[in-house]
């Protein structure tokens, strides 16, 4: 029979492990949160897919485009089209126009989400300027593409079948360029999608 002293020490050890585990859980929440949103589409996190399926359908949906720049980002950034109507499953290309209105070269990264949030799992971006940084020289203006499709499953899911309009929204932030000689890149090679953590 262990003495009270020993029992106390053992109990304190066990409880300390619990404390450490909870701290670990707090830090683990960072990647878990990101992963959870990417996998489930929670919080309006679109899917980053490589190709559309063959399940095109005749049903249509309106997709709207929204653009923002954060404070301290002197770019003019607007969608080239306010909205388009797309067939479900059909890949569509849309453009955003960005112009560096300042007198210095500026690099930006874009974060994004879709609304309403519940359509996140059904909105896929095949190709997007947001996957890489963009650098614009003073006065330079570019058209930036985003290729996407809306999964026809959106209308079979009872949760989302009442949605007739999806809004895709970007916010450009100023960032430090990885390579200071980087030129404007608008072709996106999907690396690890630089998606914003949303949840």
């Amino acid at each position: 029979m262990a003495s009270t002293r020993t029992k106390n020490r053992r109990a304190a050890m066990a409880l300390s492990v619990v404390v450490a585990a909870m701290v670990g859980l707090a830090f683990a929440s960072v990647p878990l949160y990101k992963l959870f949103c990417q996998v489930t589409g929670y919080g309006g996190t679109p899917k980053i897919k490589v190709a559309a399926g063959d399940s095109a359908s005749t049903r249509q949906i309106e997709v709207r485009f929204d653009a923002n720049v954060n404070k301290g980002m002197p770019w003019h950034f607007k969608p080239a089209q306010v909205h388009v109507t797309v067939k479900l499953g059909e890949p569509k290309l849309a453009f955003y126009r960005a112009r560096n209105d300042s007198d210095e070269t500026i690099t930006g990264t874009a974060v994004f989400n879709v609304t309403p949030y519940k359509v996140g799992p059904y909105f896929s971006k095949i190709d997007c300027f947001c996957f890489t940084e963009q650098t614009l020289k003073p006065g330079q203006e570019v058209d930036m593409p985003v290729e996407f499709f809306v999964d026809p499953e959106i209308y079979t899911d009872p949760n989302t079948k009442d949605v007739h309009a999806i809004t895709l929204s970007y916010t450009f932030y100023r960032s430090e360029p990885e390579d200071s000689d980087k030129k404007a890149e608008t072709a996106a090679r999907p690396v690890d999608g630089k998606s914003n953590i949303k949840g």
Binding site: L93, F95, R97, R99, D127, K137, G139, Q140, E141, V142, D143, M144, P145, E147, A184, E185, T186, A187
Partner: peptide
């Protein structure tokens, strides 16, 4: 508009 780079699909 000054287009230096066009979108590549």
């Amino acid at each position: 508009p000054v287009r230096l780079a066009k979108a590549q699909v």
